[in-house]
Design a protein around this nucleic acid. Structure first.
Length: 272
DNA sequence: AGCGGAACCTGTCGGC
DNA sequence: TGCCGACAGGTTCCGC
C-alpha cells in the first residue's frame, strides 16, 4: 500500500471518515515494534481526544487532535488503516483498534509490524518529521534546489531521489518510474546531471505522482475493502516489476538491477 | 559528515 | 508435497 500516492489516498479517506469523531478507547493487540514506549501513556493520551484533521507529510500520516495533540503514523511496507463499523474479533494482522464515539472503529492493520504509531504533544518533537526534505509538490522544488543540495554528489541519482532528507515522499516504485519518464539512467552519478535533466526529473516527479494519486483515487477509493495491489495502479506502471518485458517506448527488454539492496527497473536503451 | 549495509518482521512465490 | 532461498512498496542504526 504505502508510497506517497497511496498515503495521500488514505489521508483523504480518513479526513472524510473520522474528522469530528473522538476516541473512546484504544485496544493494542500487538505493540512491538509498532507503538514505542509506554503503552498505557499512549492509550491515555488518545482517549477523549477528537480528530481535527488528517494531513500527510511525505509518507507520514499526521492526525491532528483536539485538545491539542498529534498522532504520527507510518505504514512502512504493509501497514493499513481501515475504518469500519463495530466488530468483536480482531483478525490475525489487526495490531491496534481505535474505538470511536460514533460507533465506528479505526483499525491499524500490519502484516510485517514495520509500521509505527507515535503520540506527540508538540509536533515539533518528532525527530522523523523534522529531518524531512521538501515535498515533491512544493514550489520550492526547483533546479536550483537540487543543484544547491546535491550538484557535486558522487552518489547515483536513484539514491538521491530516495533520500527523504532531500526530497521527502518518493519510494522505490515511483523513482524507477520517474527516471524512466525522464530518460535518465538510475546509475547516473548525480554530479553529471545537467540543468535540463534536473528540470525533466522535477517535471516527471510531479506528473507521475499526480497521475498515480488520480489512479489510486479510483482503485482504492473505498479503502475499507482491503485491496492494495489491483486495477489501474498496476497498468499505470511502465517499468517497475517489468523485468524482461518490452519497453513501451522502444521494445528493448526492461532490466532489473539491485541498488542499495533494492530492485531498480529501467530501459537500457531509453535511459542514459 | 556522509555513505553503504544490516536489521527490524512476516508472508509469498518459484525452483528443485 | 516440502523445503529453501529470494524477495517484498521503508526507515533507523551502526560502523567505516
Amino acid at each position: 500500500m504505502p508510497e506517497l500516492p497511496e498515503v495521500e489516498t488514505v489521508v483523504r479517506e480518513l479526513n472524510d471518515e473520522i474528522c469530528g469523531d473522538s476516541i473512546t478507547s484504544v485496544e493494542i493487540f500487538r505493540s512491538n515494534p509498532i507503538v514505542q514506549g509506554d503503552l498505557e501513556a499512549f492509550q491515555n493520551q488518545l482517549i477523549g481526544r477528537s480528530f481535527k484533521s488528517v494531513p500527510r507529510r511525505a509518507k507520514y500520516i499526521v492526525f491532528h487532535l483536539i485538545p491539542s495533540g498529534h498522532m504520527v503514523a507510518h505504514l512502512r511496507m504493509t501497514g493499513k488503516f481501515i475504518v469500519c463499523g463495530s466488530i468483536d474479533v480482531p483478525n490475525k494482522y489487526h495490531r491496534v483498534w481505535f474505538h470511536l464515539n460514533s460507533g465506528k472503529m479505526m483499525i491499524f492493520d500490519d502484516v510485517r509490524c514495520f509500521g509505527t504509531l507515535e503520540f506527540y504533544k508538540k509536533l515539533s518533537d518528532s525527530k522523523a518529521l523534522n529531518k524531512l526534505g521538501i515535498e515533491p509538490f512544493s514550489e520550492n522544488l526547483t533546479v536550483n534546489y537540487f543543484k544547491s543540495k546535491v550538484a557535486s554528489s558522487k552518489r547515483e541519482i536513484k539514491s538521491i531521489l530516495l533520500d527523504q532528507q532531500i526530497i521527502a515522499g518518493l519510494g522505490n516504485i515511483y523513482v524507477s518510474e520517474i527516471l524512466f519518464h525522464s530518460r535518465i539512467s538510475p546509475i547516473r552519478i548525480t554530479e553529471t546531471i545537467s540543468q535540463k535533466e534536473w528540470a525533466e526529473i522535477i517535471k516527471y516527479t510531479k506528473s507521475v505522482l499526480k497521475d498515480a494519486i488520480e489512479n489510486n483515487g479510483t482503485t482504492i477509493s473505498d479503502f475499507r475493502r482491503v485491496d492494495d495491489k489491483t486495477g489501474k495502479f498496476q497498468q499505470f506502471l511502465q517499468v517497475y516489476d517489468k523485468k524482461d518485458q518490452p519497453c513501451t517506448n522502444c521494445g528493448i527488454l526492461i532490466q532489473r538491477i539491485i541498488q542499495h539492496q533494492r530492485s531498480t527497473f529501467f530501459c537500457p536503451e531509453c535511459q542514459h
